[in-house]
């Protein structure tokens, strides 16, 4: 098979590293070669962060480049716009419909763009969800990323059972129940 490319983008601290651990486990379980590239360190302090996930028979390069992503999972709207050009023409964008102002916007040096989702819908297939609101309804806003992941799962080649199995062994034991419920919420909406 041709190597598949997934990207997870967001704001440092939103839990991209947990999401990539789940994806890595999933693909390894399925017997694929997999490479994942992450950002640690300074950018994790509220900066723009990106994780690349590539899987297939044999994967050389650990990063995804412009125009190559099959699925782009964006935890924030502006980050979706920043990385949308990494998607293939027939790629799918899964986006958490949330706005987090970057510092240049906070200080007034830049303006947060309006109508991001409408604009992106004209370019690629977009699935959007207000995962933060859904997570609050579940009683734990920190699981919003599993909701987004659940939505993305609908557009990838793995059974729900495979996902649940890897989530159960990747998240902290005390949070298995809430995380699998969050995943289910996204999956139903996907």
């Amino acid at each position: 098979m041709e190597t598949k490319n997934i990207m997870i983008v967001g704001v440092g601290g939103q839990g991209t590293l947990l999401t990539s651990r789940i994806l890595g486990g999933l693909m390894a379980d399925a017997g694929y070669d997999v490479k994942i590239s992450e950002v640690h360190g300074m950018a994790q302090r509220g900066g723009s962060v990106v994780t690349y996930v590539r899987y297939g028979e044999h994967v050389a390069e650990p990063i995804v480049e412009e125009g190559q992503a099959d699925v782009l999972i964006a935890f924030e709207r502006l980050e979706a716009k920043r990385y949308a050009h990494f998607l293939k023409k027939d790629g799918v964008l899964i986006v958490n419909d949330e706005r987090i102002d970057p510092m240049p916007v906070v200080t007034g040096a830049a303006v947060y763009p309006e109508g991001i989702l409408e604009e992106l819908k004209g370019q690629v297939t977009v699935y959007a969800i207000d995962a933060m609101a859904e997570a609050k309804a579940l009683g734990n806003q920190r699981v919003f990323n599993l909701i987004v992941l659940g939505m993305a799962a609908r557009h990838m080649d793995f059974d729900k059972e495979q996902w649940i199995r890897v989530i159960e062994r990747t998240v902290p034991p005390k949070t298995i129940e809430i995380n699998t419920r969050a995943f289910e919420v996204g999956y139903q909406r996907g």
Binding site: V11, G12, M42, A43, Q44, R45, G46, G47, S48, E61, I63, E65, E66, G67, Q68, L78, E79, K81, R82, Y83, A84, H85, F86, P102, M103, P104, V105, A110, V111, Y112, P113
Partner: peptide, 26 residues
């Protein structure tokens, strides 16, 4: 890989990113 494509195969990146406000660490 894109650096190799650009410098040895004269293939510029497939797509350019949108102009959006930066998000430096804070």
């Amino acid at each position: 890989a894109n650096l190799l494509r650009e410098r040895l195969l004269q293939q510029p990146p497939a797509a350019k990113g949108a102009q959006v406000p930066g998000r430096p660490p804070i």
